[in-house]
Simulated assay, not measured.
Amino acid sequence: MAQKTIKETIEDQFIWDDRILSADINIEVHDGTVRLTGEVPNFSGKVAAEEDASSVTGVKKVENELRVTYPEAVVVPEDRQIKKFLEDLISLDDRLNSSTIYVKVDNGEVIFSGVVNSKWKKDVVIGYALRIAGVTGVESELNVDLTGKKPDDLIKKEIEKAFKRNSILEDENINISVNNGEVTLSGTASTHLAKLGAFDIANYTKGVREVINEVHVMPKK
């Protein structure tokens, strides 16, 4: 896909996506790397813009430099209120141990720290910030502390087996490497859906601390 076509396709994505409430997004494309600048009216829109750009064929990397600027009509909670909202959400989620998760908010920037016992639980915690008005960014210092270390070769085998059970990932050229519980996915996938599916499988595998998704989308001819 030509560079101009990538930009136009991303623009179409932004117009289509009801989560993105701003036309003030600038798109630059160079050798498959997309740079997003400008403003969006909420943090969830910033995340959605990155997801949409990443889903376009030919995009290898997205640099998300969008600024979150809430409209004057929006009542923005104070930092202490945002902190309380997030702590309440975490404490009400029976999948999480709220006593090991800490929240700090500085001028709308949320910082999570502490410990969870699964990689996907870390993502759940971060996802709660998307639901709160006033959030301008999220930084995670959460550690994944697993009870008992699972051998890397066993983690790899379980991910490979899960790939084979998944109809979306049939005949995809995705490579798996595991180092101290950190999974790196590389190679190619024929669709963005397959790339996301591979990430989800690795993410939900027991013993995984982190997942790095370096898979490139390359449609089959």
Rank of each mutant, 00 (worst) to 15 (best):
E182H: 15
V62R: 08
D93P: 02
K104N: 06
L21T: 06
I132H: 11
E50Q: 05
K220H: 07
G207M: 03
H30N: 15
P41C: 05
K122I: 02
I174A: 03
V183M: 08
V124R: 09
D12N: 11
E172L: 09
V110C: 10
V34E: 01
G187K: 13
N117C: 06
D171K: 15
T33H: 13
E172P: 12
I82L: 00
E65S: 07
N203K: 13
V59K: 04
S99W: 00
D79N: 07
D31P: 01
L96I: 02
A73K: 12
S140I: 08
I201K: 12
V125M: 04
E78A: 08
E172H: 10
S113P: 15
T100N: 01
L196N: 14
H30M: 11
S54N: 15
R80A: 01
A133R: 13
D12V: 02
V144N: 13
V215H: 11
Y128E: 15
S118I: 00
L169Q: 09
E72K: 15
K61S: 14
R35V: 13
V211L: 07
V75G: 13
E210H: 11
R67S: 14
Q13Y: 03
P71I: 03
Y70I: 06
F85C: 01
A23W: 00
A133S: 15
T37N: 12
W120E: 09
V62P: 13
E72H: 14
I132Q: 14
R95M: 11
V178E: 06
S118V: 04
T184W: 02
A49Y: 00
T37A: 09
V208K: 08
A202M: 08
K7Q: 14
K206M: 09
D52I: 00
T205I: 04
V124M: 12
T37H: 05
I111T: 13
H216W: 10
L86W: 01
K161M: 09
A194D: 07
E63Y: 07
G187S: 11
G137Q: 14
L130M: 07
R35Y: 10
L193E: 08
K164A: 11
V74W: 02
L66E: 03
N179F: 09
G114I: 04
H192T: 06
I20K: 04
A202E: 07
V105G: 01
D18R: 03
K119L: 11
E51Q: 13
V105Q: 02
K221I: 09
D106M: 01
E8Q: 15
R80F: 00
Y204R: 13
V62N: 11
V40W: 04
F163E: 00
F199L: 12
L130Q: 11
L92A: 14
I82W: 01
I201N: 12
D31K: 10
D52E: 05
S44C: 07
A189P: 14
A189C: 11
T191G: 03
